[in-house]
Design a binder for these strands. Structure first.
Lengths: 226, 226
DNA sequence: TTCGCTCGGATTGTCGACAATCGGAGATTT
DNA sequence: AAATCTCCGATTGTCGACAATCCGAGCGAA
């Protein structure tokens, strides 16, 4: 699971977590107004901790605050997503490149085992979940961790990129890309195992570009439907 | 100036700003404990807004908070800075690449004019300030803006990368690199003017690599001195 | 002397109440 | 009828006080 802190620490922290979860899963709709008093009551806490949580989410880009006018859930329009994927391509490509020289053999083996598990899952579910599931994000995050770059881990890890999970959740219905995605993951692991950073980066970039194309098409359909 | 909001909006916002400034300039030493009550009094506000500000700075990575133990100013050790510059290289390289196709001729001309101003400044000061000054950051930020990527602007802009300014401030004594830096900037602008994204990216990456080497050496010296 | 324990002060976490500000419904004017 | 003004309710911003927690000084025992 990418959500680490379960239900401990300060109230502000748990509020931030629950809010992030609600936003990512769509329980709180995009653009929805967030009423402090209401949320505070729902979470059984005062408004102080809740306001701190909102500040936190603002930094994560999950909500947008306007002074004296409250906070609203961010809306993921086409441009935002496009920007996000462009940044992801650069950052995860770099992570892959470095990881090829930094990950231990054991870590790479674990990565491969993770893919085995994913393949199993696909065979069971008929390929419904994979490309969009938490498992996919785990794969990406494991590579990011392999880069040993703390800043990268912060930017792409649990803290910052909930936006990505939000996007995944929203577009989790199409399962067309699950098999090619798994294949690409396998190729990436192979490049890592061969310690070929250049290739690993290129494969990861293409993988993310493919994911963006897939999502972009889906947005087109949605827009045409609406 | 990269600090936009002057002294308006909520108290939490101005507190975050003043704190960020104090940290970046070193007025608050690295690793220093931040006492909520004391700071609140110094800023003439209650602890509520101040706590929100600390949450904000935590997201910016300027302070590290530990539950029930308060917040401390982050310490920029070698590893942190190394990670930062690696990320910067990937992100600003990408910004440069995109900016080459997105910036208007006028914007590029303004960029060139900015460099003229910098050159002027160098001649006056004997090259003391340039490579580390706000002006340099302006140059980089203008290119980031040229990429038209909002996420990039958030990550590299005023919000997120105060860490970089902090580093600049700390190492602002050496002026060895000002002239080669200016030259590299000129080459980058030329590549942008020629709409050569590939070259522009490569030049920017090398520029940042050079900056890192320079800073790295300085850290070595400091460590040897200590 | 050194280690461990207890207790007290200080600091953080939280809450409830008050003040400031904003958006909108309704009335007034042209 | 359309536009503008005014006032009111609702929501956000802020403060002060209380409770919970942690750190360290001082004491006592081995």
């Amino acid at each position: 699971m990418l959500l680490k802190e379960p239900e401990q620490g300060t109230l502000a922290d748990v509020a931030a977590h629950r809010l992030a979860h609600s936003i990512v899963t769509g329980e709180l709709a995009q653009g929805q107004k967030l009423n402090e008093a209401e949320l505070a009551e729902r979470f059984g806490m005062g408004r102080g901790p809740l306001r701190e949580a909102l500040r936190h989410l603002e930094g994560m880009q999950l909500v947008k605050r306007i002074p004296n006018a409250g906070a609203r859930v961010v809306v993921l329009d086409r441009k935002t997503l496009s920007d996000l994927y462009a940044v992801r391509e650069a950052l995860e490509g770099m992570a892959c490149h470095i990881a090829a020289s930094q990950m231990t053999d054991e870590e790479i083996a674990q990565l491969s085992a993770l893919l085995d598990k994913h393949e199993e899952q696909i065979k069971q579910d008929g390929g419904k979940v994979y490309s969009q599931s938490e498992g996919d994000l785990d794969f990406h995050y494991q590579i990011v961790r392999g880069s040993r770059n703390e800043m990268l881990m912060h930017l792409l890890g649990s803290e910052q990129y909930q936006l990505l999970r939000m996007c995944r959740y929203r577009t989790s219905r199409n399962a067309q890309r699950t098999r090619p995605a798994l294949l690409q993951h396998r190729q990436i692991v192979e490049a890592l195992a061969n310690r070929d950073g250049e290739l690993a980066e290129m494969l990861m970039r293409r993988h993310i570009q493919g994911a963006w194309r897939s999502i972009s098409e889906m947005i087109d359909k949605e827009e045409k439907a609406a």
